[in-house]
Each structure stands twice: as structure tokens, then as C-alpha cells.
Design a protein around this nucleic acid. Structure first.
Length: 790
DNA sequence: GTTCTAGAAC
DNA sequence: GTTCTAGAAC
């Protein structure tokens, strides 16, 4: 109970420890009293023991604690980080303080938890169990029955590897307090500190348990090590080999580890900020280095005329820029604004430095985006334009300025690339060398971007819907940065091709030249990548899509003599007029069977054929019994095509499905069946799934498989028939995100970290099915009286 | 080292 | 839809 029990290294601040104001009631409501302690340490460092010891000790304090342990979060077994995050969020919401019991050795591993802590206004602490590697290894080697099979000789190697990647927790990551525990004494102090923390106490901020003298040396050691990595690598080469050969004896490791392990926050922070300043200065001063690298200058999208909230916009800019920097090795991003006082610039600058983004790759610049080289001394080969949806020159702001500066050449070049632009997308336009912007400023590409609009006076106003708005703005920046990355990549390859061709005797690249092929393959890669970006509306790309689809039909002729390609092609056209979906070559199998079942007569997969339907055993059944009732109506590819006129067909399909379910139930009375459609099927040709609810099949392999049969993505046949009858069509939730959702048991709805764990659960789960399935005969079992559907 | 997932390619 | 594979996690 005594908050001072932690000893001198961890004296809780007394400022908020004011007892006598009803501590019991305060626990849940007191803001800022919750603590999230992120444990940091390799396997064998004693994280779980630590957390349990605190939980035991804290029982007397009245502060509720929860321990979120990744090793046991999946129903007693190992789970995922996502599960941990969810559990932590739930516990914090309930007013509990939390221990995050997972390795958390890398900054990235910790970041999401830190973020969670700050969103629920909890104090975020780190306790770094920084014991000698030897100790952790020997503990993890000797333990038995550890989840995740991390024990024995293997553990040594894993711990060894993890320690190589470890990153010392820093205050700049968002921790308000960090405790270093280098031995059992330190650990005991930390246990006492947290174990004694009353509901209304809080601990002082700062770094504790760090020896002040050693770190300086460590910092120097680290610096020296970095300065001469090559020689260090050479000298340690033999040592590494010996340790690999004999992982049990890690005598080289503690030595190697010492300089990495220590390093005070203050030194780290100073080093970081010095680096940042240095980088910033470099990027401003040395123009020559800028010329040599690809640089994208971009205005803040949507925050001027489109009135998008600056706070949110700055978050998105920093996030997407950080992603870009992490993902791509080349290319720099510069956010440009005209005014020195620009609020968006200062917001972004602050957030970027907090996020420790490499400031030589992403920085802000004050200047006119059309005169960056001539007036600002900053050469940017690519600039982004905050365009309008028509990609027209007029208007005001950046759009007008860029079109004016680039002249007619940009308008012509833009027209060649696209007619219109959708919010959240971008289009990259090569700027002809005749353009003054190209000549004066060295701009080779303009990327037009359209962001979300919050201005009621402008088209497509989102009326303050920031959920949509943020997503669109995020997409817009992603699209912009990916287009830029393609330019960088393409340019690099072209340069390589050019230099190598110059070296060759002729200097001319013939079509047969292998170097040319390399360039081609890259171009096609680029084209593919481009397609993945949010599509631009213009017909150009739609044609491309349809073209490739037609190609697929050709490819899929499979030499069948009595099915002329021409007819197939017409089918494709007819259907693409009904549904907008395009079908890959692999998605045609059911169509083939439905149109020509006689060809597959000898296959034992076909159970029944009539004028209306074909019944087929699913080639990759997702349960003990899984058959498809395929409609034979040409042109009816999915539920989206179904109209009232198809109601008799739906009823026939249902009836045939029921018949087969009955038949299977006679063979095995333990089964339960469900009949339904996938909202968005992967295979062309309307088909009804008849599937037993055991889901016991090796072909059920992933999240998508599971969720497609157990979430709202699976539409019960009875509901579909009812909706089509009443509304003339079935309600299809277009959200395919549902397929990526967490894995939940279809009976008891419990969550599971992965497919194997889920499968072992469902094999044993005896809970009754959710109530919505018990209505309207959605489930068929031996005990259910079967209803005919006529 | 193994287990598992997610994304790309077909 | 499946298969293959890189990489995340321990």
C-alpha cells in the first residue's frame, strides 16, 4: 500500500497520491490513473513471472490489474498481437491497469501498444528486463512445456537472434516512464514499485534503473562500432561462426550485447535530434545532393479549398510519408507551402519529428511549388498537383499555378493520360520537354491528385464525414507516393539499361536484346502496379480491363472442339453488361460444367444433372459434406444478377439442395447443414452451397475460407428467396472486408488467433448455434423436420 | 529453427 | 478458386 515501497530508484510521485477521496470509486473514473506497462525482454527474461508477482502483490492495493500475455491469449495458447491489443484495450476500458506480456523488443512491436495507451489516456510505461543474454538463454533452454515450442536448443538460437534486433525503449517512443532491470535486485524493486501502486497513485516520469556512467562509454562504443562496421564485422566473423556451431555456449554474446544493451534515453534523444538537425540543414544547404536524388514536391491535399481538417490531414501526411520512406529505398518527399506561417507545415513538421522519420527523406519546405529550383534552390523532378476531378486547368490555388507555369504542354499531356480523376486517386503525367516547367525547373513529371472535399460549394462534398474523408485522403497520398515510386524505379532501370547499352558495341538496343526485355518486363510490372492503385475513371483503363478479360476467354478455350471461341467471347460481353465484375480464367470452371455437363459425365464429381441445375461435389470441400447446386442459366453469374424472374429457379435450387442435405443426413445423422450463397462469389455461374457445419476439411485453410461460410458474407438461401420475392433482388453487403475479420467460432462466437487453433476448437465446441441461425430452418439436422420448398 | 499468415501469381 | 513464398512471430 505504501507507494514508497519501490525504493529510491522508483519513487512514485506524491503529487497525485492523495488518499482519502474515496479511492475505490476513483479507480474506474479517475482519468490518467490507469497504467499500461509494456514489458520488454526476450524469452527467458522472466516477463510472466514479473507480471504475476506484481498481480499478486497488487491484490492488496485495490488497483485492478490485467495481464495480457501473448503466449496464452489464444484460449490458453499462443495468440496474435492483434488479440493482445484488443484484450489490452478492453481491460483499459474497464478501468484496469495492464501488463503487456510479450517480447516487445523492437520499437515497431511496441508502437501499437504505446498508441493504444495514449488514446485511452493511460500512462504508458516500459519495464525493460535487460538481463544478460546468458541468463535468458539458459532459462529458456531448460524450461519445458512452453507455448510456441520455444524451448531446448532451439530457444538459444531464437533468443540470440531476437537480442540482435532489440531496441532499447526510449522516452521519445511515447513512454512516460522507463525502468531498466539489469539483475534480480532491479526486478524485485520494480515488482515492489508496481505491486504497491494504489488506485490513485501514479509514478514519476523519467528513466530509472540506468547506471549513469556506463552509458556514455556505451554511446561511444556504439558510435565507434557504427563508424567502422566493416572492420567490426570482419573481426567478429570467426566469433559468430563459433557461436553458431555451439549455440549453447554463448560466451561471445554478452560481450557483443553490452554496447547495444545500454544507452540512456537522454543520449539517444540528443543523438536523434542532432541527427535530425544535421539532416535538415544538409537538405536545405546542399543543393547538389538534392539534384542527384529523385524528389517529389507536393502541396497539402484537400486542406485549402476543400476545407479538410488540418489536424487529421497532418496525421495522414505523416503516416503515409513514413510508410513510403520505410517501403522504398529511393526518393524524397517534400511538403511545400507558400507561407512561412503555414499551419499544416508546422503540424507535419512536429509530427514527423516525433515519429523520428528520416528527415533527409521527408521534410517540409516554404516556397512556390512552380519555382522551387529557380527561387528556392530545391530541385524537384516530380511535383504533385492538387487537381480537380475534370483535370482542367482553371480554378485557383496550386492547380491554376501549376497549369499556368507548365503551359499548354501539360494540358495536352494530361489529356493523353486521363480525362477525369476520382477522389482518392492520382495520375502521373510525363511533362514534355517543351514545357517551361520542364526547362526552367527540371520537372519531368506532374502527378495530379484529387483528395476528399469538405467544402459544400465544391463537388462531391462529404459533409464532414471524416471516416470516409480520412480514408480517401489516405488513399490519395498513397496513390501519389506510389506513382512517384514508379517514376523513381522506372528511371533507375532506364538508366541502367542506357549505361549498359552504351557499354555494348553497337549502342543500339534491338528488340531481341536481352536488356530491352528487361526494360519491358519492368514496364509491365509498373503497369500492373499502376492498376493496383485506386483506378482512374477514364475509359482507357476500363478498356484495358475488359481487354484482358477477353484475353482470358481465349486462354481458357482449352482446345474444346464444340465450344467456339467466338461464342465464349460473346458470353463474356453479355455478362459483363449484367454485372460489372470481371472473371479470371480460373473462375470459369463452374460455368463450363453448367454449360456442358455431358463432358464431365464420367467424372464422379457430378451428382445430378437436370435442365435447371447441375449438382457438383466441391472439388475443395470446406467440410465433411460440401456440394454445389449450380444454375444452368447462361448469363446468371452471381446473386447480383438475380431478379424476381429468377425466383422459381432459386426455389428449385433450394429444393435440390435440401434433397441432397437430407440424403447426407440419412448417411450421417450427426451432421448439420446450411444452404446459402456467397455475397461475392469467386467462381462465375450462380451456385448454391450445401455445406455441413463441421467444417472438418483439410481444404479449409485460411481466414477467407472460414469467414466466407460463417460471417454475413454467407447469405442463407431462405433469406435470399424472401428478399428476392419482396424486393426483387437480394441485399448483398458489398463489404468484402468481412472476409478479413477475426476468426470466430460459428457456434459460441469465441475468437481464435489462427486457423489451426480455430479448427481444434470447433472440433470440440458443443455450444448451440447463434439464435439467428435457429430461425427459419436455416440449419438442417436429422432432428429438424424438413420443409419442402415449392 | 518451426508455424502461420498474407499477398502475388495463375 | 489454389499454390507458392516471403516475412512475422516466437
Amino acid at each position: 500500500m505504501d507507494p514508497d515501497a519501490g525504493g529510491s530508484t522508483a519513487a512514485p510521485s506524491t503529487s497525485t497520491a492523495t488518499p482519502g477521496t474515496g479511492p475505490g470509486a476513483e479507480t474506474k473514473e479517475g482519468v490518467g490513473k490507469k497504467v499500461m506497462v509494456i514489458l520488454v525482454g526476450p524469452p527467458g527474461s522472466g516477463k510472466s513471472t514479473f507480471a504475476e508477482a506484481v498481480l499478486n502483490a497488487a491484490a492488496a492495493t485495490g488497483r485492478p490489474w490485467a495481464r495480457v500475455c501473448q503466449d496464452t491469449i489464444g484460449k490458453g495458447k499462443a495468440g496474435t498481437k492483434i488479440l493482445c491489443l484488443k484484450a489490452a484495450a478492453d481491460a483499459l476500458k474497464e478501468g484496469k491497469s495492464v501488463f503487456i506480456d510479450r517480447c516487445n523488443l523492437e520499437r515497431e512491436q511496441r508502437a501499437d501498444f504505446v498508441k493504444l495507451g495514449s488514446t485511452v489516456q493511460a500512462d504508458v510505461h516500459a519495464v525493460f528486463l535487460d538481463l544478460p543474454a546468458k541468463v535468458c538463454i539458459s532459462r529458456s533452454v531448460s524450461r519445458t512445456g512452453h507455448e510456441g515450442n520455444l524451448q531446448g536448443g532451439m530457444a538459444a538460437m531464437v533468443v540470440n537472434r531476437m537480442l540482435k534486433k532489440k531496441e532499447v525503449p526510449l522516452l521519445t517512443e511515447g513512454f512516460s516512464r522507463i525502468m531498466f532491470c539489469k539483475d534480480d535486485d532491479d526486478i524485485k524493486k520494480a515488482v515492489d514499485t508496481y505491486g504497491a501502486l494504489g488506485p490513485s497513485d501514479s509514478l514519476a516520469s523519467g528513466v530509472f534503473g540506468e547506471k549513469s556512467k556506463v552509458p556514455v562509454q556505451a554511446g561511444i562504443m556504439r558510435f565507434l562500432k557504427k563508424a567502422d562496421t566493416s572492420s567490426a564485422q570482419k573481426s567478429s566473423g570467426t566469433m559468430l561462426t563459433s557461436s553458431e556451431r555451439n549455440p549453447g555456449q554463448q560466451n561471445t554474446l554478452p560481450k557483443q550485447e553490452n554496447p547495444e544493451a545500454i544507452g540512456t534515453c537522454s543520449i539517444e534523444v540528443e543523438k536523434k535530434s542532432n541527427n535530425m538537425k544535421k539532416n535538415e540543414e544538409q537538405s536545405k544547404q546542399s543543393v547538389s545532393s538534392v539534384i542527384n536524388s529523385h524528389t517529389l514536391a507536393f502541396p497539402s491535399i484537400s486542406t485549402a479549398d476543400f476545407q479538410f481538417d488540418l489536424e487529421r490531414a497532418s496525421d495522414i501526411i505523416v503516416d503515409t510519408a513514413a510508410e513510403f520512406v520505410q517501403k522504398h529505398d529511393n526518393g524524397r518527399l517534400v511538403l511545400v507551402d507558400l507561407s512561412q506561417k503555414s499551419r499544416i507545415l508546422s503540424l507535419v513538421k512536429d509530427k514527423a519529428s516525433k515519429k523520428s522519420i528520416d528527415s533527409s527523406r521527408f521534410f517540409t519546405f516554404v516556397g512556390d511549388i512552380t519555382q522551387l529550383k529557380s527561387k528556392g534552390g530545391l530541385q524537384c523532378n516530380v511535383i504533385a498537383n492538387a487537381a480537380n476531378w475534370r483535370l482542367k486547368a482553371g480554378g485557383g490555388g496550386v492547380n491554376a499555378a501549376i497549369f499556368n507555369a507548365a503551359g499548354e504542354a501539360l494540358q495536352r499531356a494530361t489529356k493523353e493520360c486521363a480525362d477525369t480523376l476520382r477522389p482518392g486517386s492520382s495520375v502521373s503525367v510525363p511533362l514534355p520537354s517543351t514545357s517551361p516547367l520542364h526547362q526552367k525547373e527540371g520537372v519531368t513529371h506532374v502527378i495530379h491528385v484529387l483528395g476528399p472535399n469538405m467544402n459544400p460549394m465544391r463537388p462531391d462534398c462529404l459533409k464532414n464525414d471524416y471516416t470516409k474523408g480520412c480514408k480517401i485522403l489516405h488513399d490519395a497520398y498513397n496513390s501519389l507516393f506510389e506513382n512517384f515510386a514508379s517514376i523513381v524505379q522506372n528511371h533507375t532501370v532506364k538508366q541502367n539499361v542506357e549505361t549498359s547499352s552504351k557499354k555494348s558495341a553497337s549502342g543500339v538496343i534491338s528488340p531481341n536484346d536481352s536488356k530491352m526485355k528487361r526494360a519491358d518486363s519492368h514496364d509491365s510490372e509498373r503497369a500492373k502496379k499502376y492498376k493496383l492503385l485506386p483506378p482512374i475513371l477514364p475509359s482507357r483503363q476500363n478498356h484495358e480491363h475488359k481487354g484482358s478479360n477477353t484475353q482470358n476467354h481465349h486462354d481458357n478455350s482449352m482446345g474444346s472442339s464444340d465450344a467456339p471461341n467466338q461464342a465464349r467471347e460473346e458470353d463474356g460481353k453479355k455478362n459483363s453488361a449484367v454485372t460489372s465484375k470481371t472473371w479470371g480464367s480460373w473462375a470459369q470452371a463452374l460455368y463450363e460444367v453448367a454449360m456442358h455437363p455431358e463432358k464431365y459425365k464420367n467424372s464422379d464429381s457430378i451428382l445430378e444433372t437436370s435442365d435447371e441445375v447441375v449438382v457438383l461435389k466441391d472439388l475443395y470441400p470446406k467440410a465433411k459434406k460440401h456440394v454445389l447446386v449450380i444454375s444452368r442459366t447462361d448469363g446468371l453469374d452471381s446473386l447480383a444478377d438475380v431478379k424476381k424472374e429468377h425466383l422459381p429457379l432459386l426455389r428449385s435450387m433450394h429444393s435440390v439442395g435440401l434433397k441432397w442435405a437430407q440424403k447426407f443426413l440419412e448417411e450421417d445423422a450427426s451432421l448439420t447443414f446450411r444452404l446459402g450463397y456467397h455475397s461475392v462469389p469467386s467462381m462465375r455461374q450462380l451456385h448454391l452451397h450445401v455445406i455441413s457445419q463441421d467444417f472438418n476439411s483439410p481444404s479449409l485453410k485460411n481466414k477467407k475460407h472460414w469467414n466466407s461460410f460463417t460471417s454475413a458474407f454467407f447469405l442463407d438461401s431462405v433469406d435470399v428467396m424472401e428478399e428476392v420475392e419482396q424486393q426483387g433482388s437480394a441485399t448483398i453487403s458489398p463489404d468484402e472486408k468481412i472476409l478479413g475479420m477475426e476468426l470466430r467460432c460459428h457456434r459460441c462466437r469465441s475468437a481464435h488467433p489462427n486457423i489451426p487453433k480455430l479448427k481444434s476448437h470447433i472440433a470440440a465446441c458443443k455450444s448451440s448455434f447463434p439464435s439467428h441461425l435457429l430461425k427459419k430452418d436455416k440449419l438442417l439436422s436429422a432432428s429438424t423436420p424438413h420443409m419442402d420448398c415449392t
